[in-house]
Design a protein around this nucleic acid. Structure first.
Lengths: 297, 297
DNA sequence: TCTTGGCTGAAATTCTCGTTTCAGGATTGA
DNA sequence: TCAATCCTGAAACGAGAATTTCAGCCAAGA
């Protein structure tokens, strides 16, 4: 590698840093590359360390001096600014690039496809349903979408009461469907290959007068027959696997929308949940695993 | 006027400049703002003037001193970097559009950010590790990333043997870490606010000579201290919640890559798994895991 | 041509900034 | 628990930065 970017170096050296150095590293990444272009004293203040620590941090990265480090930052900056338009990795590397950019480009395409496909009114209607606290909410996933369902349920549970994630195994779903009542909402996930069991489940839910929302692929799962709202997502990747990333993204959008829709109510719930959760953005490491080898020549 | 940008000031003062000053101005505009962040001497050389001229140029712009001028440049840079504005079909409606397109545009931005940040070699190294069947694989998620971890584990389990997803509760994780052996791989997820428990877990894993891979946000979880490989992901959405979508996408990319890397081996597994329920692979892998962990230290 | 006024950059000066040192404090291993 | 080791930041130090000075230079007008 001719020129590893400073940022890359920081990432790969992260493990070697002591806790004060890591604080400097994080501060730099948080305001990159600007903070590194400031004088040492300012860097130190803003990362709540000392000048000496910043110098050690820079040395650890392999630069001969602070000015040397800054020169590198400026060089990078020039390069980056020079090509502001062609920088989209999606466009540059679609045909022949590395795996990750290529794959990502496909996902972006899927996202755009999906956004075009889903009518705004439909999306808003679904969000409103999901945010409605008077309705209990049941979330059901298929074989490959179970974790996505879990993610949706986990977040909505923080925002509002009455959220339940149904178990994955079809056998236990049969029992659980007894809990579904009229005026409840059921969010289902089903992408190919479609699960016949889910269709039965959806039929039963509708019979109980629940409102069914379906997230599926663009070929539309048979569950749609029983659903009030359908959100079709693009899932193709060109590889062995279909992608659930768009379903996941859709869920995040729904969560965000539902939270924002009823902010005051959600806020207090979120805050009380925060209190329980572990806090420590800046946990100091209690361990020194090994002596660092410093001082090369 | 609140704060005229430096560039604007240069333009409007252009008439007042003497010829040497104008040379300095043109040089700055030609490599903006980088050249201004360099020391006076370098600015002078690269604009073929003298240090004194550069100082006069800066004074002419109305700045009290050269450092003062630089501070302004840095402030601008911070602001500007914050909105890199990649142009994507979805992002046309970023400002005022409907919720879903706006949200999606943000995710696309995050994806692009992340792809730029992650070195190709790092990604490939991680995929190779994950695909390596000689190593058992343990997957651990944090509070908000548990479902993402589950998704990764569920798919990898189809591709290869020896995959285990650890439970969410820290208490049970403590027991489970006993199964981690030397030459195992541990994939961890930790985004802010970071879970101090996960750092302890990572430290323990490393002590057992396992190789730790971390998926985190761009501010880098303290877990990184113990990790061999770190994949930093952009997670900001501008809303209440951080987004795990990029983590999810990264997982899909890893899954796709790992599958493709060892296609023949994966193929037969996938085919035989098609008919079988997803839970049945689990018993087998548990056996492998405990057998393995007794052997080495 | 000579003079004047002002621009320019080399060199001197000043002082800020980067660097090093060291002692106190924290952590680890015995 | 105690010693050994390592991390950390305050302060001293020295290098190199910004700034100022000034003599030379050029252009324009007499």
């Amino acid at each position: 590698m001719a020129q590893a970017s400073v940022e890359t170096k920081v990432h790969s050296a992260m493990a070697r840093f002591t806790s004060a150095e890591a604080r400097a590293a994080r501060a730099l990444l948080g305001d990159y590359p600007t903070l590194g272009l400031a004088p040492v004293a300012e860097f130190a203040t803003r990362s709540r360390t000392s000048a000496a620590t910043v110098l050690r941090f820079v040395a650890q990265l392999g630069y001969a001096s602070y000015p040397d480090f800054q020169r590198r930052l400026r060089e990078e900056l020039s390069e980056r600014i020079k090509t502001p338009l062609e920088k989209t990795p999606a466009s540059t590397s679609k045909r022949c690039g590395a795996f990750l950019p290529r794959f990502t480009a496909k996902l972006v395409e899927n996202l755009n496809d999906t956004v075009m496909r889903v009518p705004q009114a439909e999306f808003e209607a679904v969000c409103a349903l999901i945010a409605d606290r008077r309705r209990n909410l049941h979330v059901v996933g298929g074989r490959f979408t179970d974790s996505v369902a879990a993610y949706l349920a986990a977040h909505l549970r923080i925002v509002r009461p009455g959220v339940r994630k149904l178990e994955e195994r079809p056998a236990s779903r049969a029992d659980q469907q007894l809990d579904i009542g009229a005026r409840d909402t059921v969010v289902m996930f089903d992408i190919r290959r479609y699960d016949p069991d889910l269709e039965r489940f959806a039929a039963a839910a509708r019979k109980r007068r629940a409102t069914v929302v379906l997230l599926t692929d663009i070929w539309i799962s048979p569950v749609a027959r029983h659903a009030r709202h359908v959100l079709p997502c693009a899932i193709e990747t060109g590889s062995t696997w279909d992608s659930s990333a768009v379903l996941f993204a859709m869920c995040e959008a729904m969560i965000a929308r539902a939270t924002e829709a009823d902010w005051n109510a959600a806020k207090s719930r979120i805050e009380s949940a925060e209190g329980v959760s572990p806090t420590s953005g800046d946990a100091k490491s209690k361990k020194r695993l090994s002596a660092r080898s410093r001082g090369r020549s």
